[in-house]
Simulated assay, not measured.
Amino acid sequence: MAKRPTIQDLAREAGVGVATVDRVLHGRDHVRQATAERVAEAAERIGYHAAGLLQARAATRPKMRYGFVLQKPAQAFYRDFAARLERAVADHPEVEGRADILFPAHQAPDDYCDAIRRLADRCDGVAVVAPNQPQIAALLRDLRAEGKPVFTLLNDLAQGDRLGYFGTDNIKVGRIAAWMITTQLHNPGKLATFVGSSRWHGHILRETGFRSYVHEFAPKFQLLDTMVNLDTRQLTYEATLDLLERHPDLRGLYVAGGGMEGAIAALRDSRPAGRVALVVNEITPESRAALTDRYACLAMATPLAELCRRVVAAMTAAKLSGAPPPGQVFMDPVLYTPESV
């Protein structure tokens, strides 16, 4: 009489661990669709007694298409963001998901609207990084009326029309930046800030947090007028060099949005390391190198892995169960210093 295949035999045939086979058998979480299908196929090949159940387990997950609008695909941060979104969709245990990611051709409102509408027409839900523009807010309002779940990432726009926001508390981020700079410096002096534009309210909130902390706890420091850099490296580079020429006694600089690479390059070209206390957002090869070389004293990173997992879970719940919207979901930034990179 032939020996009945065991769970160990099935695991070996499928190329997975016994624990993974057990999770598929019992319908537990954290098993990829492809893995469940591989186990089911192996069970059929070797005549495992629960092959029918495994086939049913592998076929029970619904299919979902998730749409994401990001920006600036040339930037390391957004390339990493896209990769982590794809991983979060692939790893979600309840659905067989596909991530559809678009980058607007330009930064004009119509470009964002075109990308959002295209995704909304073919996806079960959409999450966007976009500026606070009336045209974009109106589109999100229309999508909500159509029953399409839309979430915002990093920058909270269209409050009341989007289902939820996922990102950091930008007021808090700005206050952390001010705390670091003013405690890093032994003597008061001039402080400067960059924002991408007035349409990125996340940047404006960071600026507000920065200024409120200085006014409250470091009033001897002089705050210069905030500068707009359009989140670009070259403009930030040129503006930083001009700033240093006009204010040779500048002590601290906070880049509240993108373009930090330009500020880092300008400081490398014109000042010794540590002469100006620089705080930036996000950890990238450039910001990591600046911390290592002491040209930056702090980088505050969005916890992207956590953000991606949570927004994918919220999009899934909105589609499958009509779960109530999460509102604002704040995640604490990850702080990197010269001694922690």
Results as ranks from 00 to 15, higher is better:
142 D>G: 11
207 E>M: 09
71 Q>P: 01
175 R>F: 05
338 P>R: 05
337 T>V: 08
311 V>F: 00
178 A>Q: 12
215 H>E: 15
217 F>N: 05
212 S>C: 04
101 I>E: 01
44 E>T: 12
238 E>I: 08
38 R>D: 06
31 V>E: 04
289 A>Q: 15
176 I>S: 04
192 A>F: 09
56 A>L: 12
174 G>Q: 03
98 R>A: 11
340 S>W: 01
276 V>P: 10
121 D>E: 15
223 L>M: 14
193 T>P: 05
173 V>C: 10
186 H>I: 05
184 Q>G: 02
151 F>Q: 05
293 D>A: 14
178 A>D: 11
21 V>P: 02
302 T>Y: 09
318 A>I: 00
189 G>K: 08
117 R>F: 03
102 L>G: 01
212 S>A: 15
289 A>I: 07
121 D>R: 08
213 Y>W: 15
284 T>I: 07
283 I>H: 03
268 R>Y: 14
195 V>C: 01
304 L>Q: 13
280 V>P: 01
236 T>Y: 08
114 D>S: 13
119 L>P: 05
85 L>C: 04
62 P>K: 09
18 V>I: 15
89 V>L: 02
9 D>M: 11
152 T>Y: 07
4 R>E: 13
98 R>G: 05
85 L>R: 00
292 T>E: 15
144 R>K: 13
333 P>D: 11
199 R>N: 14
220 K>W: 06
40 A>G: 02
22 D>C: 04
17 G>R: 07
318 A>Y: 00
161 D>G: 00
220 K>D: 15
159 Q>S: 08
68 F>S: 04
83 A>K: 10
289 A>T: 13
229 N>F: 07
164 G>E: 03
322 G>P: 02
124 D>V: 02
304 L>H: 03
291 L>W: 03
324 P>E: 10
188 P>R: 04
52 G>Y: 08
131 P>K: 10
17 G>C: 10
107 Q>S: 14
315 M>L: 15
193 T>G: 07
21 V>L: 00
124 D>Q: 11
156 D>G: 01
183 T>E: 12
248 P>S: 11
212 S>E: 15
32 R>A: 13
211 R>N: 13
310 R>H: 12
40 A>R: 00
273 A>V: 06
250 L>S: 05
291 L>I: 02
299 A>P: 02
155 N>P: 07
207 E>T: 06
220 K>T: 12
125 G>Y: 00
143 L>A: 02
106 H>C: 05
276 V>D: 11
140 L>G: 02
169 D>W: 05
194 F>L: 06
336 Y>L: 07
184 Q>Y: 12
195 V>W: 02
112 Y>C: 02
302 T>N: 11
90 A>R: 15
48 Y>L: 05
